[in-house]
Nucleic acid binder design. Structure first.
Length: 559
DNA sequence: GCCGTTTTCGGCCCGACTGTTTTCAGTCG
């Protein structure tokens, strides 16, 4: 993890603890704002003065400097000691905020979600002021949701941790396998393979990110990291690298299918190689193994144990969309609404990525907290037009992220919508409508001729909120019929659409936009996670509108 | 805590929703 992300996480934790200990709400907001700005700051704060980050003054700068020196700061240590861990977990329950968490702890001694569950079940909280029967029932439901989701982390967290682990170890060869390599949107634990001397295990156990050693052997060491995620490190022989990668990448179902192929030929496939008796047929590279079995190389995101093995035997695997196919980004924000970087900085960062086009899509007025007005949007359009002169090779598109109201309507009338190059439309509230109402809502949005892309369609937040309920077949048919693209929102805690729904939508003839939904410059890189979702859904470049050349994209947008 | 063409104090995104209450507190985006 970058120093910025670690420092921001510590500050964010401090903000939470500060709120839980009854601290001033404006100060809480200051800490949160600064944490967001530090995480999104393009330069390494270990290398530059952190006071240069907007929202960071003298007090926060001191805390961050202490953090960079010793991995914590005094005020954070104090609050960690004062606020029980269980109380912090209470606030992760949806609809349970700091006020209620403090009250439950101080009045009833409840310091964990399980204690809360028992207290509700036993009737101990019946008749408590502010906690009616509906609230208690909602809390129980929230606890259940939390317990189901808390064992896995989203791919953004897992990727950062895996990269940190690999960078911290010296090896002749090192790489990650498992569900992370298959680009699943959530990851249970991280598998790292290495070709290295035995001493790597001791080095691994001594790393500062290790909280607990679960198992320590010559071939495998398992630890729980300070972030709570388990990491397994396996040392493999150099000659078996490909076989080990193939074996530990999985999925289990994929490996069963591939091993059956080997058995049919009278061979044996293990993590040490593909063998005919004692003779090694292939072991050093995955490509050799798949080749020897008479099939195409199967890219990890496709190894799900579905029909990829059959397709690979027939030579019918798709030519998957790659990160390098993307020619632009169609959903990004600036500090005009809830982004933290200026229009000029976001555009410059997009240009540095070599895009052929780039859309700025700040929020529209119906999300009142964003304070957007038509005047502000038009002024931004002027600024963008002036910026365009500086970037002749990159077409700047002025867009907006509209809000889909419960009836499926959006923020502005047609004459205003007509003026945008691209309109993304997304659901941001009213998540609990009935399936029928929600389906009608999405279909109405698709039928709006100015809506080009449905943003983060299920609105799920991994570990926090389940997706909305809708008849997706009906929604996808409407999207295909109206020429409305569905977004693959690459922001890792969204990962939305999820790959199974992408595959279903593709079946209906839908096109997709792989967007970063960036609120800061580093977020532009998140598109790699969206590519993973697209690959798991077998998408080719032709399925993704932001791989298309500009003129084809503009034709699709109908502008 | 931060911030400043209304600068060193007094503001700080604010409206909707839910479940509770009998006029509102807490939570969320």
């Amino acid at each position: 993890m970058r120093a910025n992300d670690e420092a921001a996480a510590a500050l964010q934790e401090y903000a939470e603890l500060f709120a839980l200990s009854g601290g001033d709400a404006f100060r809480v907001r200051s800490y949160q704002k600064a944490a967001k700005a530090i995480a999104g700051f393009p330069d390494d704060i270990a290398a530059v003065d952190v006071r240069g980050v907007p929202g960071v003054g003298e007090a926060i700068a001191k805390k961050m400097e202490e953090f960079l020196q010793r991995g914590s700061f005094r005020q954070l240590d104090d609050l960690r000691a004062r606020v029980p861990e269980g109380v912090r977990r209470l606030t992760r329950v949806p609809s349970l905020g700091p006020k209620t968490a403090i009250m439950l702890y101080e009045e009833f001694g409840i310091d964990s979600t399980s204690a809360l569950g028992e207290a509700i079940a036993s009737g101990r909280l019946d008749g408590v002021k502010g906690l009616g029967p509906k609230t208690l029932a909602n809390l129980l439901k929230g606890i259940e949701q939390l317990e189901q989701s808390s064992r896995r982390v989203h791919i953004g967290i897992a990727t950062a941790l895996a990269e940190q682990v690999m960078a911290s170890l010296r090896a002749e060869r090192i790489g990650h396998a498992g569900s992370l390599r298959r680009m699943k949107d959530t990851i249970g634990d991280i598998d790292i393979l290495a070709v290295a001397p035995p001493s790597i295990m001791a080095d691994f156990r001594a790393q500062p990110y290790v909280a607990e050693v679960i198992a320590a052997g010559d071939k495998k060491t398992s630890v729980r990291t300070t972030s709570g995620v388990q990491v397994d490190l396996r040392v493999v022989p150099a000659g078996s690298w490909g076989a080990a990668m193939q074996y530990f990448t999985g999925s289990k179902e994929h490996n069963v299918a591939v091993r059956e192929l080997a058995v049919k030929k009278g061979w044996k496939l293990s993590e040490y190689g593909l063998f005919d008796g004692d003779r090694v047929i292939a072991a050093e590279s995955e490509e050799d193994i798949y080749d020897a079995l008479g099939m195409q190389y199967v890219p990890p995101p496709l190894r799900q144990g579905g029909d990829e093995v059959r397709a690979a035997l027939r030579g019918e695997l798709p030519d998957l969309v790659e990160l390098s196919d993307l020619k632009g980004d169609l959903h990004t924000h600036t500090d005009l609404t809830d982004g933290i970087a200026t229009l000029e900085d976001m555009v410059a960062a997009a240009h540095a990525r070599g895009y052929a086009y780039y859309a700025v899509t700040d929020h529209a007025p119906d999300l009142t907290m964003q304070r957007m007005t038509l005047d502000k949007a038009l002024e931004q359009r002027e600024r963008l037009a002036r910026l365009q002169e500086r970037y002749p090779g990159m077409r700047l598109l002025h867009g907006t992220e509209l809000n889909i109201a419960p009836d499926g309507s959006v923020d502005w009338p047609e004459e205003v919508l007509r003026g945008f190059d691209v309109c993304v439309a997304s659901v941001h509230s009213h998540f609990t409508m009935s399936r029928d109402e929600m389906t009608r809502r999405f279909i109405a949005a698709c039928e709006n001729p100015y809506v080009d892309v449905i943003g983060h369609p299920t609105t799920r937040k991994i570990g926090k909120r389940a997706g909305v309920d809708a008849d997706w077949d009906a929604v996808f048919r409407a999207a295909a019929r109206t020429g409305t693209a569905l977004e693959i929102d690459s922001y890792p805690d969204r990962s939305d659409l999820p790959s199974d729904l992408v595959r279903l939508a593709r079946h209906h003839g839908v096109k997709f936009a792989i967007d970063s939904d960036s609120h800061a410059i580093p977020h532009l890189e998140h598109q790699r996670f969206g590519i993973g979702i697209a690959q798991r859904a077998w998408l080719t470049a032709d399925d993704v509108i932001n791989t298309w050349p500009l003129h084809r994209l503009l034709t699709f947008l109908g502008r």
